[in-house]
Structures are given as C-alpha cells and as structure tokens.
Nucleic acid binder design. Sequence first.
DNA 1: CTTGGGACCTGGCTGC
DNA 2: TGCAGCCAGGTCCCAA
Length: 267
Amino acid sequence: MPELPEVETIRTELLPRVLGQQFVEINILDSKLLQGLPSTELQRVVGKSVQRLERRGKYLIFHLSTDKSLIIHLRMTGNLTVNPEIGKYSRAFFLLSNCTTLVFNDKRRLGVIYLVENTESIVGKLGVEPLSEFFTQDVFIKLMRKHHIPIKTALLDQNIIAGIGNMYADESLFDAGIHPLVLTSTLSRQDFRSLFHSIRSVLSAAVNNKGASIDTYVRPDGELGSAQFYFKVAHRKGQPCYICGTPIQRLMLRGRGSYFCPRCQPQ
DNA sequence: CTTGGGACCTGGCTGC
DNA sequence: TGCAGCCAGGTCCCAA
C-alpha cells in the first residue's frame, strides 16, 4: 500500500519527468476519481505547467502555473507510471509537453484526484511530517501524551503524524519492542524515545529502498521497490521472529491486521 | 474524548 | 469448474 516511503519515492522519481512541463492532454477514464468534480473543470489544467511537486503525508501535490493545484491520493492500490500501456486498471492519463504520459492505475478505484485553490482544504488537517525537522522527540511525546488510545491507533492517525500506514506502524512498533495495543498513556519517556528513533529509521530505510512492492505498488518507471524484503513482522504471520524465533502473530485493531512478535513486544 | 462499525471498492483467495 | 463468501486497508462518517 502506498504510505509515506512509497509516495515519496513516486515524488522523487516523477520530479525530473514532470517539473516545468505543461499538461497537453488530460483523459479521465473513470470519473469516480474526481469525486464529483466536473471533468470539464479538470480540462482547465491543459496548458498549465508543473511548478513544484510536493508530498504531504500520503498526498502528492502538483503545484501548477495557475491558482489551482492538482492533488492525488493513491489510497490502497493506486500507482502512477510513465509511458506504460493503458491497461484494464488505468483510470486516467495525462500527456505532458515532453511527451511523457503519466498514467494513474488503480485496481480498487479508491484513489482520488482533487483540483483545489487552497491545498490546505485537503491537507490542512494532517499532522507533523515524521521525517521533517519539526518532528522531534519532544514534539512526539507531547503529541502522544494528548491521547489515551492504543499506540498503533495513534501512529495510524494522520492528523497526529502524517504518512504512517499499517505496514510501517507495525515495523516501527516491532523495532521499538512495543505491543500495538499498549495505551499511549502508559508508555514511558524511554519507550517514546525508542519509538521515535524506530519511526525515523524504519521510514528512512524504506525511502532508501524505494518503498515496498507489496500488492500493486510500483515505481513510476515500473521497477519494484525493495523495502518489503526487510520487513520483520508485516505480512509474516506464523513465520519465526528474526530475533527470538517465536511465530509472528496477527491481531485485529480497528479492522486492521496488526503483525507483532508476542515475545519481543510484550503487552 | 474514544470506540466500534460500516461504507467505499474489487482482485484474489478459500471452501464447498 | 463455478460460485458464494471473505479478506485486504486508507479515509471518512456516524452512532454510542
């Protein structure tokens, strides 16, 4: 699933292909993508160029040479590729002035495209960027201590920290040796310090590995990411923990599967 | 404030 | 071989 490392990889690899380029042609194959925005509105982007490509949480923001910005969220199964064939799951494609074709593919049709004047109307509620300078130990501890909820629920709340999804929440908690159900209010300062460093190292390692190609995620050029090869708990139910050999378990938390080692992450 | 559930969505899997 | 039923999880929404 596209989480922060996947969206960041897409951003950096797309950047040289789209920066400064004009939209020449826009084709929406699945109008559901636009969430009710008339397709004709989106056509007004034709002739505008990409001034800046930004990631905020799991959102990708195309700042254009107009007062509107194009925002894409890939949700569960979306990806963005350049110059591929238009396939069964292609929902939209964009032709750019350098002849790059940008294709939005999405098997499960949950991905969305917004066109807005004020990007804050979409991303304004998002919490702190975990790889930014604004995310410090003290900020993290203050944010966590405001809540009394299971730590994994807190990590998944995009309005607290932006960009962590199910896979990297599990990996971070394993790295810090913290059980996903432990309440934020019962964790020690040392627990938070440890988890803070785990979040940063898990996310930055995954960015360096170009994201995790589980299910439908591919990089813009079609290549796979390799972060999945380094997963220690995510999607490893029943397999032995690399540290202690105990079989990895899975529990349900707010309708999401949570993978953890019952021995390394005691409750 | 928090929790739990449902909705969206469909490919892929299981089991009969 | 077919088909029903369930699962995957990012985000939003509603009821309790």
